[in-house]
Amino acid sequence: MDRRLFLTTAAAFGALRFAMDPAQAEGTKFEVTRSEEDWRAMLSDIEYAVMREEKTERAGSSPLDKETRPGLYACKGCDLPLYSAEAKYDSGTGWPSFTQSLKGAVRTKDDDTLFARRTEVHCRRCGSHLGHIFDDGPAPTGKRHCLNGVSLSFKPA
């Protein structure tokens, strides 16, 4: 396959993927919206990079990775409760990890960067990037919601 055909085919598959998944489509509406300027004013540089540009914080940099108290983890962008401390576990990865989110709290989309397909997880209310979901977690779900601590705020019970 020549380069032009490859690029055309890849672009077509990308457009098809966006058409099939409304959460990935440009112009997706969220309950909480802010201008880029407003997001930048309310978030630190690393929070903005992670939550709005889908970057990743450095492993081991979040104090939430070692948080063990009962409570809820909420989106730092809109304060929506996302995860219960009951679903949190120590994955040994250096990021806060959970077996599942609260019902209806998150949206997912495919992430094809880094030459592998992963599942990206976002807040369903404001669209903030939280992290990724992997299939190597413990029972009962077998999932590992590997999250950036800068995307979360912890609310003790």
Rank of each mutant, 00 (worst) to 15 (best):
A87R: 09
G14Q: 13
A41Y: 02
H145F: 13
T8F: 05
L16N: 00
H145D: 08
A15N: 02
K66N: 14
V106F: 01
T56F: 06
T56I: 13
R125E: 11
R125L: 08
C123G: 00
G14D: 12
D21S: 04
K88G: 00
D38W: 00
Y48H: 10
G142P: 01
V50M: 02
E54N: 15
E31G: 13
T108Q: 05
P22N: 06
E37D: 13
I46K: 11
G14V: 04
E54F: 15
R58C: 10
V32E: 02
R125Y: 09
P70K: 15
C126R: 07
S91R: 11
W95N: 03
F6Q: 15
L80C: 05
M1S: 14
I46R: 14
C78E: 00
R117W: 10
F154T: 02
R17I: 00
D90R: 13
S61C: 01
H132I: 09
G27P: 07
K29V: 10
A49G: 07
F30M: 05
A15Y: 03
F30A: 04
D45A: 15
G60Q: 02
T28C: 14
G131M: 05
K103F: 14
F6K: 15
P22D: 09
T8L: 11
G137D: 00
S91P: 06
R124Q: 12
E31P: 05
L5Q: 13
T113P: 07
H132M: 07
K155H: 15
L7Y: 12
A49S: 12
N148Q: 06
A87S: 14
R118E: 04
K29D: 04
E47I: 03
A87F: 13
D135V: 07
R118A: 00
A85F: 01
P140G: 03
Q24F: 06
T99L: 09
T68H: 15
H122S: 12
P138H: 11
P138W: 05
M51E: 04
C123Q: 04
G71M: 07
E57L: 11
P156S: 07
S84T: 07
D112L: 14
G71F: 08
A85D: 11
D2S: 11
I46Y: 01
L64E: 03
E57P: 03
R69D: 09
D79T: 06
M20W: 03
G131V: 02
A59C: 12
D111P: 00
T56V: 10
L147V: 08
D110Q: 14
P81I: 08
T108K: 06
H129L: 07
D110K: 13
S35L: 04
W95C: 04
G94F: 02
H132N: 08
P138V: 10
D38T: 10
Y48C: 05
R117S: 09
Q100G: 00
A74K: 12
H122W: 09
F115H: 14
E57H: 08
Y73V: 01
G142L: 09
V106Q: 00
D38G: 05
R52L: 08
E26H: 12
A15T: 07
R69I: 05
E47H: 09
R34E: 08
R69Y: 11
T119L: 09
T99W: 08
